[in-house]
Design a protein around this nucleic acid. Structure first.
Lengths: 354, 354
DNA sequence: CTGTTAGCGCATTCAC
DNA sequence: GTGAATGCGCTAACAG
């Protein structure tokens, strides 16, 4: 049997309360006493039973996810995953909530962060916007001792505890590499559709894409980036225009969330046989992949990201270490043949273990 | 606050013990009483606190992984992952052990399964071999009420509780699709290196590969399958021979674990510019991918598989449902650009949350 | 500064 | 058939 607090209390010749004090390093213990207890802990190889601890604390963990509002399908998918995780969360003493803020609005995000701090939540996960207000708000969360993770888009210098998302430069490189191979010797320029270059992850993807394309044996022109603001209508117009003007277009890389407009334009421009690579599996991209309109979709698993965020926030809240290998979000490549079946319908209701 | 056993005892006008009896449906409760309690459970929306239950039971879960022995790097990787999970497992009241048996030996596997049943373990995970003895042994595990999951290679009609691994037909299709696209118009036949066609997953991968290749616009000859028994030396010879004889060879699909021999032969046959697709990220395939000897590697994440097996076995042991979406093992596609950094060095030691 | 005591939610002997 | 009492490993009042 594993050693318990009783064993270490006995071994150190102190009471349970004292053991508990040094375990949770709370004040009110003399240095000598503390040392004795710590020695006993090491000698017995004690590891705290987190389940029992949480039971005793009967602590609940209110966690808040702050996501951009609007009809960005990936973000709505993230939101769905949070709610789905919420269904299982009672068992894990975790209380999930979602709030949405206008996209790309640093001030609004900062306000929401402060509000969460006010409510004394146990952890915050947010899609970061690159703005000074946000940086400051994250700093305040840190000061309040509230764990903070960035989701999907990072803010590395903010002091956040963890970033949960993919390496976007590598994602861009992967897209470029696939595009180059799929096109082979075929001539013609490539277009890039982005949301906005003011968003960090979009910029990084472009950077990686350009690097990989220029490393290809066949050199190929990349047209000036089209910024569709992740808006379906604007994206549609930009792509439709491009298709009309550039008759020998060979491929399109859609690195943002403007896929609905992209797909509409592709469907209209019949028989062009382009190589198209997009990001995030959504209803639109899934259908386009299955229909042959899109050749590959790069994806980050929203469900994994949400569960990872929860695990990391809870670990930080409990002062536990994080299993890095488990929390690394992979960049998934999907083609028609390895597309997983529709999500959502495959979940089992009821309480669950983990 | 969530309702507890006390609440439902009070509501039903019975004692804790009685509530417990119906919760764990044990005998010794009158029909009427049982009905009252069950009504209260439903009305209050009671869900059992598994953590507290396990604490009270002070139950530990001895789980056993039965893996093929030998120098198959993927299997050794799986074993490493089990040990790694074992380091965190104390916290989760789980006791992991690994036993190895000769590869492809149904009788040896069956014997080991029986031994595990004998020891009354709480769950068994095994790489299935397609043999009647194994089928029978899995049946005995079921009768003994011991949860059983198949790992990597399934045995669907065995009555196992769950399969943890990828869809191998889809894996083969994906390989075929990528091979076709990467080759494009380039002429020449394609070779297939397998371990043994008597293994189910290898057969399924071949099936998918052939289907995808034949669906390609450019028709292409597939050479007779080379069976390397997953043996480095034999695989090397087969591939070296093939390279020597088939001067216009366009590609190789390695669907088994003979990659060490494959890579050696590729390295020797300089400047042949083949399209090579292999399975499982190991030291060899990683290096080959980085060095340009291999174009793509299809992978199943061993760490995820092990953790999934543990979660599923525990859930089954506790009679809890499984979160299907979380337990589905994805088929990962790796090219040079999205290869994750070396695993193993990125783990944090010490106790962990999950 | 340190120790005693009473739970957290559940399972399990024992009596009745 | 049913209930009361005790303990799992830990935390948190409250005393001393």
């Amino acid at each position: 049997m594993r050693p318990t607090v009783h064993d270490i209390a006995e071994r150190a010749g102190v009471s349970l309360a004292t053991v508990d004090r040094v375990l949770n390093d709370r004040p009110g213990v003399r240095g000598v006493t503390r040392a004795k207890v710590e020695a006993a802990i090491v000698e017995l190889g004690y590891v705290r039973d987190v389940a029992a601890a949480n039971l005793a604390k009967s602590r609940v963990y209110p966690l808040v996810f702050i996501l951009p509002e609007g009809d960005n399908p990936f973000m709505r998918g993230l939101e769905d995953e949070v709610r789905r995780a919420g269904a299982h969360s009672l068992v894990e003493r975790t209380q999930l909530s979602v709030v949405t803020v206008p996209a790309f609005d640093g001030r609004a995000l900062a306000r929401e962060i402060d509000s969460a701090i006010e409510r004394a939540v146990a952890g915050i996960a947010a899609v970061a916007v690159d703005a000074p207000e946000v940086l400051a708000a994250i700093g305040r969360a840190r000061e309040a001792g509230i764990p903070f993770v960035t989701l999907v888009s990072d803010l590395a210098n903010s002091g956040r505890d963890h970033f949960i998302g993919v390496d976007n430069i590598a994602a861009g490189r992967t897209a470029g590499s696939l595009m180059g191979r799929f096109l082979g010797q075929r001539p013609g320029p490539v277009a890039v559709l982005a949301g906005s270059m003011r968003v960090r992850d979009h910029g990084e993807r472009l950077e990686g894409f350009l690097a990989a394309m220029s490393a290809m044996p066949v050199s190929r022109a990349i047209l000036p980036v089209l910024e569709g603001q992740d808006d379906p209508e604007l994206s549609f117009q930009l792509i439709a225009e491009c298709l009309a003007e550039v008759r020998d277009l060979a491929g399109i890389y859609s690195l943002g969330a403007g896929n609905r407009g992209l797909v509409r334009a592709l469907a209209a421009g019949t028989g062009r046989n382009l190589c198209v690579i997009a990001h995030e599996v959504t209803d639109e991209t899934r259908a386009a992949l299955e229909g042959g309109l899109v050749d590959a979709v790069l994806n980050q698993d929203a469900g994994h990201e949400v569960r990872s965020a929860i695990r990391v926030l809870r670990a930080k809240a409990d002062g536990l270490p994080v299993i890095a290998a488990q929390e690394r979000i992979r960049l998934e490549i999907f083609i028609k043949d390895n597309l997983p079946s529709e999500p959502g319908m495959d979940d089992t209701p009821g309480p669950a273990g983990n």
